[in-house]
């Protein structure tokens, strides 16, 4: 059973770990996991839905555990802006004003949408509240992340979209930060997810889901998957192994069963 280790002071240290103790790169598990998923889907699948069913990391979080505040536009916009800050950190950008820099960066690639409209409607007081909120998350994040060395090959907002069951199911994911490479003799890919909410049981399922989708996408099992809460400064890290990935397959099948039932 993988263990959760809490409250690392240095994120990069936790992500990379001891280089000498890394396992050999696993390129053979992906096909088995895909087959497990396909077999599991076949057992309860009825008709092909149109459009296809989409599973995201958020689908695996228990919605009952999530407070309404976390689903509000304010919380979602704060989350988006903190993710932009992670992207800026990944290239070693100097951040002079956390809110302004994140907001500018976000607006560069977002020109429409519900959150965009919400941001346009914010008045001076709301903007000031949001800026203070983002700033507090930025301070926690910047202290934990520190400088990300370029030799770790950091990639931010890494997207994945894995089609299953003839394209009728799509597993989508965005990993906030990924370091390491899939090439090499030993596993080195570490996945890092940032959330602006406190960590809960849903976060653990999300960590597993990130590892599963990354394995299915690249065919290589990542070394580690982790989640960091910029609200509490807490970080959970799991070493990825066969058991963790199989548990994630079961998580995804449970979500799909519920989706089919409610469709």
């Amino acid at each position: 059973m993988p263990t959760l280790s809490e409250s690392h002071r240095n994120v990069m240290e936790a992500l990379r770990g001891d280089r000498k103790r890394r396992p050999r790169v696993d390129t053979s598990s992906a096909a088995g996991l895909r087959a497990m998923l396909e077999d599991g889907i076949f057992e309860f699948w009825t008709d092909a839905p149109e459009p296809p069913l989409i599973v995201r990391a958020s689908s695996l979080r228990n919605v009952k555990d999530t407070t309404d505040i976390a689903l509000s536009n304010h919380a979602r916009l704060r989350g988006v802006l903190v993710h932009e800050l992670v992207r800026l950190f990944s290239v070693g950008a100097e951040i002079s004003s956390a809110f302004d820099d994140a907001f500018r960066a976000w607006q560069l690639e977002t020109v429409a949408g519900e959150l965009f409209d919400y941001a346009q409607r914010l008045d001076g007081d709301d903007l000031a509240r949001l800026a203070t909120d983002v700033m507090s998350h930025y301070v926690t994040l910047s202290r934990a992340l520190g400088v990300i060395p370029a030799t770790f090959q950091p990639r931010s907002a890494v997207r994945a979209s894995v089609m299953m069951h003839g394209g009728t199911i799509v597993l989508r994911d965005v990993i906030d930060l990924m370091v390491g490479t899939t090439l090499g003799e030993v596993a080195s890919v570490a996945l890092f997810d940032v959330t602006t909410s406190p960590l809960g049981t849903g976060a653990e399922r999300s960590m597993r889901y990130h590892a599963l989708v990354q394995t299915l996408r690249s065919g290589v099992v990542p070394l580690r998957t982790s989640v960091f809460s910029s609200a509490t400064g807490e970080m959970w890290t799991l070493d990825v192994d066969g058991e963790l990935l199989r548990r994630s397959v079961n998580d995804v099948l449970d979500v799909l069963r519920a989706m089919v039932k409610h469709a």
Partner: peptide, 10 residues
């Protein structure tokens, strides 16, 4: 702006 350029770099 510098932050926008950083996003392009990312």
């Amino acid at each position: 702006h510098q932050s926008e350029l950083a996003l392009v770099k990312a």
